[in-house]
């Protein structure tokens, strides 16, 4: 049954448009670097940008770096905020629940679809980046941040591992969105609130006086996926990030469940 949920999401024009925009980002960045003539100097521009002219596959990592602060959380907020509130808004929720589609079961399926969306969205960025990079630049063995060299295959595997970790970074936000989605029948409100929380977390993370709470912020470890491109891989921050996301998921999925299984469905 959750395959039907997946089909419902990806058959929707809005979802396809979101993924299209995400795919466009690495393509635009790679094209800009290619056609402006000069590559970036080390330390200039987003993470990995300086590597792009030497090796096209880095377009995938640049793409992940630039979509992570804004586009990816926005896409997740749209899909997560819509999960329950969207069904309520259309009125389909009452028909699903009286089929009956158990409330817990529906919530779990919506959650599973969200996880799939997070991973698919980041993979779309990675794949679009690799394809655009391969067309516009030479590709070859991948130089890691530590200066060692990986074969093209091993490097590509690392890139997809990075995409998966970025997808995992979004799960906490997805869980918050799912929870907010159970609070309202207005999907736009749920989407805006979810996106707002991602922005707020980023803002708080940028205020040094608040460093005490930084390790607990949703977005704090987001950009650490680059540690996968070290040799050997530096797991500390990545592990912390994934544990933090798991914690957010546990709290907010439980809250969503408690709310959704007891609420009066009036829409």
């Amino acid at each position: 049954m959750w395959r039907a949920e997946l089909a419902l999401l990806f058959r929707r024009t809005r979802t396809q448009a979101l993924l299209g925009v995400l795919a466009l980002v690495p393509i635009v960045v790679a094209s800009a670097v290619r056609f402006s003539g000069g590559g970036a100097q080390p330390g200039e521009g987003p993470q990995f940008l300086d590597q792009l002219t030497h090796n096209g596959v880095f377009a995938a990592l640049v793409g992940l770096t630039v979509t992570l602060p804004f586009f990816l959380p926005l896409a997740v907020a749209v899909v997560a905020g819509d999960a329950i509130a969207g069904e309520a808004n259309l009125g389909t929720l009452r028909y699903l629940l009286t089929r009956p589609y158990g409330r817990t079961r529906l919530l779990l399926h919506k959650g599973a679809v969200l996880v799939a969306f997070c991973v698919i969205a980041t993979c779309v960025v990675a794949i679009a980046g690799i394809i655009a990079g391969a067309i516009l630049f030479p590709i070859g063995p991948v130089t890691t941040l530590s200066g060692t060299t990986l074969s093209l295959t091993a490097g590509t595997i690392r890139i997809f591992a990075a995409a998966a970790v970025v997808g995992g970074s979004l799960l906490g936000l997805a869980a918050i969105g799912l929870f907010i989605s159970t609070l309202t029948d207005a999907p736009v409100g749920a989407m805006a609130a979810t996106a707002g929380i991602a922005v707020l977390s980023g803002v708080l993370d940028a205020i040094p006086q608040l460093h005490a709470i930084h390790p607990w912020l949703l977005t704090h470890y987001w950009l650490t996926f680059g540690d996968l491109l070290r040799s050997p891989v530096r797991w500390t921050a990545i592990t912390k990030n994934l544990l933090l996301q798991a914690g957010y998921m546990l709290v907010f999925i439980t809250a969503a469940w408690a709310r959704f299984t007891t609420k009066d469905v009036l829409a």
Binding site: L8, R11, R12, L90, G91, R94, Y95
Partner: peptide, 10 residues
């Protein structure tokens, strides 16, 4: 109940 409700894009 309270009128039909379906997904407009399907």
């Amino acid at each position: 109940v309270e009128g039909p409700a379906f997904y407009p894009w399907l």
